[in-house]
Structures are given as C-alpha cells and as structure tokens.
Amino acid sequence: MISSLRPSKRRPQPQLTPETGSQVTAGIKNFELKRNDKYYAWLFLGPSLLVLSIFVFYPMLRTFYLSLFLTDNFGRPTVFVGFQNYVNLLATKSYLASLQATGIYVVGVATFTIIVGLLLAAVANQKIKGIEFFRTIFTSTMGVSVSVSAIFWLFMFNPSIGILNKLAVGLHLPVVNWLTDPHWAMVAVIMTSVWMHLGFTFLIFFGALQSVPKTLYDAADVAGTNSRYQFWHITLPMISPTLFFVAVITLISSFKSFGLIDLMTAGGPTNATNLLVYRVYRDAFVDGNYALASTESIVLAVIIALITLIQFKLLAKRVNY
C-alpha cells in the first residue's frame, strides 16, 4: 500500500515550488493582478464568511433585534419597545437573584474545582505505593455523562434513602434537605458540578505537576526552602498557565451548566439555582417568551464577553513566562 502511494506523493506540486512563489510576488506589482488578488481573497473567505453569517452573525443580530420587541405566541416580534425589555429585566428581582446565583455558582464551581483538583493532583504526584490506582480513580469522572452524574448525585441527596443523610444520621448531624432547601440546593449543584469537572481538572493539573522539572525542587532544597514555600513559589508559578487555562475552561463550562440544573433542581427551589442559561431556556422554550429570552441572552453574552476580556487582560499580565 505504502509503496503504491509514494509515487503519487512525489508528483510535482507546482503551486508550492519556490519559482511560483516568486512569480506571485513579482505579479503583485502588476495592478491588474492586485485586483485579482482581492477577488481571490474574497473567494477564499467566502465560504467561511457565509457559514459564519448564517450560523453566527445572523442569529446574534436576530437575537438582539428580538430583544427590542415584545413577541407574540408564535415568537414573532409585534410591539417595538426599544430597550424597555432590558430595563424591565434588570428591575426584575428574580433576575437579579439569578445573576447572583450564577455568580455564586460559577465562582464556587471554579474555585472548588481548582482547589480540589490541585489537591488530588498533588497527592497523586507523590511516590506512594499503589498511587496508580488512585490516579485512575481521580480521572474517572471524565467518562461520566451529565445525566449519569446527576442521577448518581440525586440518589445521594435523596432525603429519605440518600447516603448523605444516612451518614448524617449515623454521625448525629442534622439532616439536610439537599435539594429542597434553597441554600443547600446551591451547595448540592456546586458539589455535583465540581465532582463532574474534577476528572478533567485533575488530569490537567497532574500533567502540569509532572512537567515541572524535578531539579527546580532540588535547587530549592539546597537553597534552604521547605515544601510549603516550594509549593507557593515554584509549583504555583510553574503551573500558572495551566491554572489559568483550567479557570477559564471551568468558568465557561459552568456558565453553560444546563443539563445538571435541568435534571437536579429545574432551577428551584424558589429560583435558588435558576442560572442564567437555564432561565433563557425556560423563558424561550417553556414559556415561549422569545423577547425576554433574547434579552437575557444578550445580557448573558455581554457578561461572558466582559469576563473573558478581564481574564485575558490578567493572562497577559500575570501568567506569562
């Protein structure tokens, strides 16, 4: 097979030879060809621009357009209201509560995922007998789908048969209404989400820790530092690009948490876990209020854009080496 393929590979590829390249460069001086280049440029860009227009730009503009109207039962914009939807939305208590809940959720998930993931990776990075087994265990959540983890945790949170409350009873701790108490529901979904993110985060952190050269620690040993000092002054700075990467990934992915919320709390109780994305879904596809959902989408897009901007500003400043 390989030998039969080879001759065809060796066939001259005229457009790649240096002579052709010089011809093109020479040709740019020619006005007519320059015009042709422009024409070609658009031709090359054409397909991707078309795809982007259909699947990205148009929906974005349409969403913004819809957010300036009231939409009827068919989702058609009927009454132009300008920015009234935005004004109303930002005056809606439950929306502000959703904003707050999303903030708590996103920050909570990212923080705990990073801390626990790093902790597990640090443990797995030790030379202990049988650590390979734990490395496998720690990465295992990567293979678990949202629905399976949601069901798995729902069982654990079950008020009457859940293992968590059974444990609590066994330890003479007060029983917690995991998914029915507004505060605990947030804790519960954060726990589940952190658990889901953990496998991936662990793997990334573990890889990062492994790639820190051992001699850096040797040098620090000789320089007279203890292991805590080394963690803060060598390990953390060395893995800071990874840390940033994980933070971005986790933040964005928890902003998008939908399946988990839908399966575990459906936004409840009392809207305690009604995150922005879930709210958009409910308003659009359950309540059929496309104008409101569009307005919320635009606000969400602006928030995510802002956060991304801040993150990349930080990236340029802090984690570059």
Partner: peptide, 28 residues
C-alpha cells in the same frame, strides 16, 4: 540540604522560568 551550607549548580541550570535573572539569583 539547607543546613549543609552549600550551593549547587545543575546540569539543566534549574532556573525559575517565571523569574527574571536577578530574582533567580535572589531566590534562595
């Protein structure tokens, strides 16, 4: 190691890539 009062130079230099030259020298 820190109480043996010695310094060490490694084959790979063991420089901290996130620190500048002066900070590397000052690390210990």
């Amino acid at each position: 190691p820190k109480d043996r009062k010695l310094s060490m130079v490694f084959q790979s230099y063991a420089l901290y890539p996130f620190l500048d030259v002066a900070a590397n020298v000052a690390f210990g």
